[in-house]
Every structure is written in structure tokens, then in C-alpha cells.
Design a protein around this nucleic acid. Sequence first.
DNA 1: TTTTTAATGATAGTATTACTATTATATTTG
DNA 2: CAAATATAATAGTAATACTATCATTAAAAA
Lengths: 222, 222
Amino acid sequence: MNALNISVSAKLYNKNPEETDLGKRILSKSIELMEEIGYEHVTFKKIGLALESTEASVYRYFQNKHQLLAYLINWYWGWLEVKMAQEFMMLNSAEDKLKRAIQLLVMPMDEDERIPHIDEGTLQRLVVAEYPKIYLTKEVDAENEEGYFLGYKRLCDTLGNLALQINPAYKYPHSLFSTVISAAQSQQFFTEHLPRLSDATKGSGTIVQFLTEMTLNSIQKR
Amino acid sequence: MNALNISVSAKLYNKNPEETDLGKRILSKSIELMEEIGYEHVTFKKIGLALESTEASVYRYFQNKHQLLAYLINWYWGWLEVKMAQEFMMLNSAEDKLKRAIQLLVMPMDEDERIPHIDEGTLQRLVVAEYPKIYLTKEVDAENEEGYFLGYKRLCDTLGNLALQINPAYKYPHSLFSTVISAAQSQQFFTEHLPRLSDATKGSGTIVQFLTEMTLNSIQKR
DNA sequence: TTTTTAATGATAGTATTACTATTATATTTG
DNA sequence: CAAATATAATAGTAATACTATCATTAAAAA
């Protein structure tokens, strides 16, 4: 069996959803439902209903909707890192790795067959639509200590280190990649919903070009 | 009297809050309360209480909390544009104007004495903490048609046009400035709450430098 | 095999939220 | 002075975000 496990901080659940059948179904249905009706309109009652289970059962796995979203988003960043690590093995230069990383941030994802209960494509669209909501709260400092944002931070570090391989004197690797990762999401959203805030048309080619140029122009030695 | 009026789409309120005393007090207290306890924890009941007025009275001005936030954020972008236009009069080159614009996006704001009922500094902190919440919803397309995001779009256009003055061949002016405006906000947030996502320390100098370099490197002719 | 434990389902209940509606009162305008 | 308008006071409703209890079933341990 070639299963693959993405690690998510234990503070992001009451009871580990990866360990039970119901848990996995909760993940699967939550992604689907949140992407479909939007975070604000999701309730644990609706998730329970969609699962043919109950509100109380969902509460056994997650304290609340916010924690569930944080779990899913962290899972996504963790999975992306694994994906990137795999692809990087086939590439030599840091520049090529960065370019590929940007593509992975923006391009639609295929289902990973090693993880049948999670539809990565739907999860990616969920992340595009909801990701800042997990940190833009008054609880951010407390949740930060619990590891709610580790996925994002790790990804940011990984890409920042690639930039430093290209130019060790570059002064803003963390700022640059938190900006690039964030822009990768928001440009997708703008292209679809607020096109005046983007120069891309449907299809992700322009976004990748824009981000790649911006990144390389920023870190280049001069 | 040298009053100054920032125009906000009439779809962003039930009854224009700028036209009455209670309306202005609602704006003033909402900014204060939202910044203090966070958007999620605000209710119209609490705003009414803080005003020594009632929930029902607040509902006469705004349909709901979401519309109120959208109003405030649009007001902020409108006000920033006015501020920028004033400052641009004293500058000649497009590059200097862009640099100044980035400073205005990031630096703490003084109270504008022409508008006594709005504390621009507090409003700026509110925008940093909450701005994506007005468009990251399933209602974005409908609200876009109502003009909920005009402030952001106009600001983005204004800065994009400056970039095109520097390099008319630059291909991504909208994407770049939606990214820069957004990064200006999120880098402030990260510096304070998630420092591993930024290279700046408290005080806005580093953020301004980072954004300025990124912007100019992106649009330069090569 | 029996016993215990753990997981889930079913149901009920509470406080708060997000409104809507009604009426009374005060203020402004014609 | 009459009429219109703005606000305050209050009540009420449906949905939300939980918490708690108990019964059932399945799996694991004794």
C-alpha cells in the first residue's frame, strides 16, 4: 500500500479525522460543501446532514468551523510542499525550482490517487476563496502559538531558501514569498470575479508569467 | 467651512450616514469597535449600545455588518486616493509619485481634521485586519455589480497608470498593483502577528523598501 | 465468550445572532 | 399648527453555535 500522510498539527482537531472512516468522510464532504456554498454559509448541522451523520459527530472531530477550515488549509499547504519536493528532485537549478513552484501554486491540481478521500482540485479552489480567513481574526496570536499557520510558514521558508540560493544577499525572502503565495491565490480569485484587478484572462498562464517575472526581477543580483 | 466629502456608492448603505449626526456617530463608533474587538465579534446590538442608541437605528443605515464593513473600506480607499492626488501635485515624475503612494499605503495616518467623525489611523488598522473579507464571499459577483469594490479598483487603476507612464510596455499593471496594495496590508499584519512571514520589524520602513523595490524592479524597462 | 471500551447516532436544550415589526416620542419642516 | 421624519423602546422569530445526555453498535481486551 502506498498511502501518503500529510501531517497537520494536533491542535487543529479534537480527534484526528485521518484515523477513522467518519473522519475522512467529514474532510471529504466539508471540502465539497464549503467550496460549494462558501465558508460563511456552512454549519456543522449541514455537514452532518450531507454526511448522513449528525452535528454532534462533526463536533467530536473539530471544535468549530474555523478550526476545520484551518485544518483543511494547513493540509493543503503541507500537501503542496510534498508535491513540490517530488518535482524538485527532477530539477537542478534553484531558478527552475522556483519557476515550477509558482506553476504548482497556480495551476489546477489533479486528484492525488494516494489520498482518495481528498479532492485536491476542489480543496485548491477552497483555499483560493477562503485562505486569509484563518489568520485575519483577533485570535491570531493565540492560534499562532498552537501551530495554526505552520503550513504557510514552512512553505514560505522553503521558497525563501530557494531565492537565497539564487541571491544570498536578497533582503526580503519571507516578505517576497508570503506576497507571492498570497498573490497566487488572489490573482486566481480576481481573474474570475474582479477582472479589473488582474491582467489575466481565464486560464492560468498569465498569472504564472506575472508572478515568475515579479519574483525573478525582485531577487536578481544587480 | 472646508469640509471634504468622500464619495461612496449609494448601494453601500440604506440611508446615507454622512447626512445625519447619528449616521456619523455610527461610522465613528463602528470603526472604533470593529478595530477593537474584530469584525466577527461585532454585532449591531453592540454598536447600538456603544452609541447609546439601538440596534434598530443602526439597521436603518446599513443592511448588515458586511455592508457596513464594505462601506468603511471603500471610504478608506476613496480617502487614500484623495490624499494621494494632493501629494502628487507636489511631485513631478511618475516614479516619485509611485514611491510616495507606497509610503501612503503603509505609513500610519494622521487624523484628517477636515473629517472629524472619522479617525483615519484606526480605520487604516481596521482595513489591514479585515479588507479581504468584503470580497471573499459567495456574493462577490452580485456585490461587484452594486459597486462594492469600486474604491479598490479605482486605486489600482490610478497606480497602474503611473506604472504605464514609466514603462508603457509593462504587461501586468492591474495584477501588480492589486498585489502591491494587498501586500501593503498583509505585510503590516504579518509584521505584527506572524513575523516569520515578513522580514520587517516594527516600524514601516522595511515594508516600504520591500514594496518599492519589488514594484520598480517589476515595471522597469529591460 | 463475556466484558469493557470506544465510536456513533438521536435527541434535546441554551444563549446568542441576525434580523423584522410595531408603537411611542421627539424634532424638523411647511 | 399640522405633517412628516428620525429615533428610541420593545418584542418577536428563525437560525446558529454550541453543550449535554443517553442509547446503540462495533471492536478490543480479558
